[in-house]
Design a protein around this nucleic acid. Structure first.
Lengths: 233, 233
DNA sequence: CACGGTTGCGGTCATATTGGTCATGGCCGC
DNA sequence: GCGGCCATGACCAATATGACCGCAACCGTG
């Protein structure tokens, strides 16, 4: 399962958008464009046909606004038909109840239009990793294994800047770390920027929490291990 | 939505387990036990009745092994009936091949029996936070908002660890041993991870004591026999 | 065959150094 | 002048390390 390409069906009524999605797909390794459907009913037919042909679809890129059915309805009908095909929702609509319904319908990712190629790629790569995770182990032996698999669907998000962090200091820390080729510890940042260790640590921790920095302990020296931080590429 | 208690239906055929779950629920604020069902069909009836009574269920704690239907079937029927009720699956280890199906059925969390109260509480609190996240804003305004909402459902649990053991070091040791096909000695772990022998031994001993690793002496070389550790499958 | 010597890891301790928290103090806008 | 915001120093807690001793299996020599 994990070592063949992921067959993707694009469901999108606007031809230009559908072509754009298909083009984006082509730039990613591990994915194959397996067809395009312009409305809900033809999407369901295409899915059934793929199953009948012995080449089932693995993933649907589903626009939520379709001429005949709502994307959520299509998803529900897929579930009712017993399909476990994964779905990534694409929508311009940001209403809450849609998101709630999406979770219940087993939608794995949610893309808001308009999106850049980078965002698109990130979501799909994450999905690919999720499949690899599931495929690589024959059995999950612990709660932790399951949590890891679920976590691979999670996107690193930028948290809003919390109280206590100043814009300018944050910028300085980011600039410094972007220039480095090797990870820096909090005391090294302290030296370079002329700020206190406490302050440096506060900013580094925040950036690590939001996923902009990688954090890992530095072993080898006596004393408590020192965390080192690196700009994530 | 966010400011009233979350109504929970427990679906579990073994009375003792059902009572345990209910008792666990009682210890958490923000949740109300709204009933118990012993099999799939009565669960579906209870859900319909709650809707009819104007007090719909918000969350189902669903055991996967039920006398009449499989938990996944119950979930699919719920979706087919148009219910967007959220579901947390509870299952024993050997049924883990259905994780894929669970994701597609819109199951938000996955608990492996037997679980501690701490694990149970963490999953439910995560779910509560997810609802709060959604409830606090009238609309999702950005990709980032949606990502955060999804992320709050998908953060991994922390392994329980005594004082003196660091989360990241523990994770590194576990990951290293999971990758091995042959057992490793503490000095081999020392080399591979770049940590000291004392530290490696401390983590290996902890993992062996908690049953995650198998430990056995390695004979044949001069000197005191060396313990070797292997990930328990 | 027996018995002491050698060897290298098991186990423990004190030590080194950072992580993390709190109250304090300066600076800026109102 | 005053209140909020953010950096700081001081403090305690956490955790990896080196050193040290003892142990348990191999290895010679008698």
């Amino acid at each position: 399962m994990a070592d063949r390409d992921i067959r993707v069906l694009v469901v999108e009524d606007e031809a230009i958008a559908a072509e754009a999605h298909t083009a984006y797909l082509g730039r990613l390794t591990g994915f194959v464009h397996a067809g395009t459907a312009g409305d809900g009913h033809s999407a369901l037919r295409a899915l059934a046909a793929a199953v009948a042909a012995g080449q089932p679809i693995d993933l649907v890129l589903m626009d939520m606004t379709l001429p005949d059915l709502h994307g959520l309805d299509v998803s529900r009908r897929m579930r009712a038909a017993g399909l476990t095909t994964d779905i990534i929702a694409i929508t311009a609509v940001r209403e809450l109840h849609i998101v709630r319904g999406a979770v219940a319908a087993g939608i794995v990712q949610y893309l808001i239009k308009p999106f850049s190629y980078a965002t698109f790629a990130q979501k799909l790569v994450q999905y690919r990793d999720f499949r690899l995770h599931l495929g690589s182990q024959s059995a999950m032996t612990s709660q932790n294994d399951v949590d890891q698999a679920f976590a691979s669907l999670r996107t690193p998000t930028e948290l809003p800047r919390p109280k206590g962090l100043a814009e300018s200091t944050l910028g300085a820390v980011i600039e410094l770390l972007k220039l480095q080729t090797v990870p820096l510890s909090s005391s090294e940042v302290t030296e370079q920027l002329g700020i206190s260790r406490v302050t440096a640590r506060r900013y580094l921790e925040h950036l690590a929490d939001t996923g902009l920095l990688d954090r890992s302990p530095r072993y080898g020296t006596p004393g408590r291990p020192e965390n080192e931080y690196a700009w994530r590429r």
